[in-house]
Amino acid sequence: MVLRKFGHLANKQEVQEIILRRGQLTASVLTYGAAIRSLTFEGREIALGFDSIEDYLRYAPDLGAILSTEEDPDQSPTKMQSWNNWPDLHLWTLEEAAADRVRLSLSVPIGAADKGERAELICQYILMPNNTLRIELEGHSDKEAYFNPRFHGVFNLSPTQKLETHCVSIPASGYSSPVSGKAAWLQIADVEGTRYDLRNAHRMASDAGRPLDVTYYMRLNRLTVPELSAVVQEDTTGTKMEVWSTEPGLVYREGLSIRPGSHCRAPNQPARQGFSIEPQGWPRTKEKHEFSNVILKPGEVYKQRTEFRFS
């Protein structure tokens, strides 16, 4: 494990970088956003990040970070302040670190700040045997609050950076379908016969094509042991990435463009293309499914485990 300074925020708080290694995986984690800045497999960069804190603030503050998922305010009970929108909440506390793991914590206010009620989130990154990155999230709250964290990592497994060399399959039968005049997550539709059916391998598209951006419904309930949620295969290297998660939902996006200046790219080169696979809870819906409740109550403990397995 290597611990070093990465830079400072506008309020002079220091951002630290923790470098983890195990097997053929190396991960660089920031205390800013609990973000994965860099992930390499067999010596190749497979996750997108920036070389400076200034680039994060300028281009994509949420890149590789642990985010909270927003909800329609008309449906929501007391909400946490979203840590991805508040720069002074971006800096996580480094609790402990070892050669192959790091544990970070964050405390955010709920509702009126003067009442002192808070939600707490623990994030642990662990490099496991067999080239696996495990992400463990645990949370609790002083007051009932919307609680649906997710990891916003952006990947590209190709050394040429071409997104079209990737195929993805997602074993989901349902997705969020827009309802006229309403938020896109208010109706659950069958993927059968739609462009969102990825149960068979789908060739990714860049931003010049028709890239997908969709929320999938994987299963009814949050699990205690992860199940397979997605598989990505890259043609030129043969690299495979499997995503296993306890979460019942999943956000999939492709054709994401990270501006020049991103990690391992000179400023005068084109922006890198990437994709994200982000397990999460089911959003609350007008249909009021019991299993779509992502409200954390006092005394309850939220737990998520997601694994990215590379071969």
Rank of each mutant, 00 (worst) to 15 (best):
R118N: 13
I110C: 05
L104V: 07
R103D: 10
L121T: 09
Q124M: 09
D114G: 00
D114V: 13
I122G: 00
G111E: 06
R101G: 09
L127K: 03
E96H: 12
I110A: 05
L133E: 02
A99S: 15
A119P: 09
I122L: 09
M128I: 01
I122Q: 06
G116M: 05
S105P: 08
A98E: 15
K115R: 14
E96N: 14
K115I: 08
A119E: 02
D114Y: 13
D114T: 10
G111Y: 04
R118L: 12
L133K: 03
L106S: 11
A98F: 04
P129N: 03
Q124A: 14
L104G: 07
E95C: 08
D100G: 02
R101E: 10
E120D: 10
S105D: 08
K115C: 02
N131F: 00
N130F: 02
G111F: 01
N131P: 06
A113Q: 14
Q124P: 11
C123H: 04
A112E: 08
P129V: 04
M128T: 14
T132W: 00
N130Q: 09
Y125Q: 10
V108E: 01
N131L: 01
G111T: 07
T132Q: 09
P129A: 07
I110Y: 04
S107G: 08
A119M: 09
K115S: 05
I122A: 02
M128L: 12
K115L: 13
C123A: 15
D100E: 14
L133N: 03
A99H: 12
S107E: 12
E95Y: 06
E117G: 02
S105Y: 01
G111I: 06
L121D: 02
A112L: 12
L106G: 08
Q124S: 15
I122F: 00
A98P: 08
D114F: 10
V102H: 03
A119F: 03
S105T: 15
C123W: 00
A119T: 10
S107D: 10
A99Y: 07
L133P: 08
Q124R: 15
I122D: 03
P129C: 00
S107R: 14
A99T: 15
P129Q: 04
I110K: 11
R101W: 14
R101V: 01
L104N: 09
V108A: 13
C123M: 05
N131Y: 02
M128N: 08
N130L: 01
G116L: 11
L121N: 07
Y125R: 03
A99I: 08
P109C: 06
